[in-house]
């Protein structure tokens, strides 16, 4: 504990006594600032304020801009069929790894080797349900947990994510609002913007450094 006490008292001395501000005033300022959680006090850029069709369009365009691919589905029931097609087109085995996501549980996966659980050493294809899509940057936000184990997001060589069209939000502000509404904070909140990449060898950007080589997003009409 002594390191803690020394660090904090050194800070307190500089910030309170020597700055001529009482601790009480400072405590109030911090409490007031933390009460603002959920409200953005900084400017929100125009690109984070799109609406309706323009917002969906931007989300798709931004996804493609970060080397992800997108398809639209009419209904969640179309997912297994679309998945078979995607796997075939990518020359991947007819197998998919996913969590206990309720949206996937009721679907007919008979045509696929669909297994449930965490990510393993070799995972050619994994599937996650995103919490929301951010049109501002083409980002998908995911909450970890039994429904969507976090390891599937990073171990899948091709990572598929599913969003409903109504899950797409204009910017980071609405994203956090949805995260807060989704219940107690999950262990991780993962913001994924395209497939893994690195330019550490020869300063040439290559996809698939450690995480997925490819990212595909299915947007399902509500």
């Amino acid at each position: 504990m002594s390191g803690r006490v020394r660090i904090l008292s050194r800070l307190r001395r500089s910030l309170s006594e020597e700055a001529g501000v009482t601790d009480e005033e400072r405590r109030e300022a911090v409490a007031a600032r933390l009460r603002l959680a959920g409200a953005q006090t900084a400017p929100v850029p125009e690109i984070a304020r799109t609406e309706g069709a323009a917002m969906l369009e931007r989300f798709e365009a931004k996804l493609r801009g970060v080397d992800a691919t997108v398809t639209r589905l009419g209904a969640m029931a179309d997912l297994p069929g679309a998945m078979v097609e995607e796997l075939r087109a990518r020359n991947l085995p007819r197998a998919i790894r996913m969590g206990e996501e309720p949206d996937f549980a009721g679907l007919d996966w008979a045509e696929l080797d669909a297994t449930r659980g965490v990510g393993r050493l070799e995972e050619p294809a994994t599937l996650s349900r995103g919490l929301c899509g951010v049109a501002e940057t083409g980002t998908v936000a995911l909450r970890s947990g039994p429904d969507n184990p976090v390891t599937l997001t990073f171990l899948g060589e091709t990572h598929f994510m599913v969003l409903k069209a109504s899950d797409v939000v204009p910017g980071l502000e609405e994203m956090w609002a949805r995260v807060r509404r989704a219940g107690p904070m999950s262990r991780t909140v993962n913001l994924v913007t395209g497939p893994s990449r690195s330019a550490d060898i020869g300063q040439v950007l290559q996809l698939g450094a450690h995480g997925p080589v490819a990212v595909h997003v299915f947007i399902v009409e509500d």
Partner: peptide
């Protein structure tokens, strides 16, 4: 020059009771 890096991860605490990984 990226608008957003590929992975931005917010982590809190060890795995929850119901978590299968972490």
């Amino acid at each position: 020059g990226q608008e957003m890096s590929v992975y931005t991860t917010f982590s809190a605490g060890p795995r929850r009771e119901e978590d299968p990984d972490g």
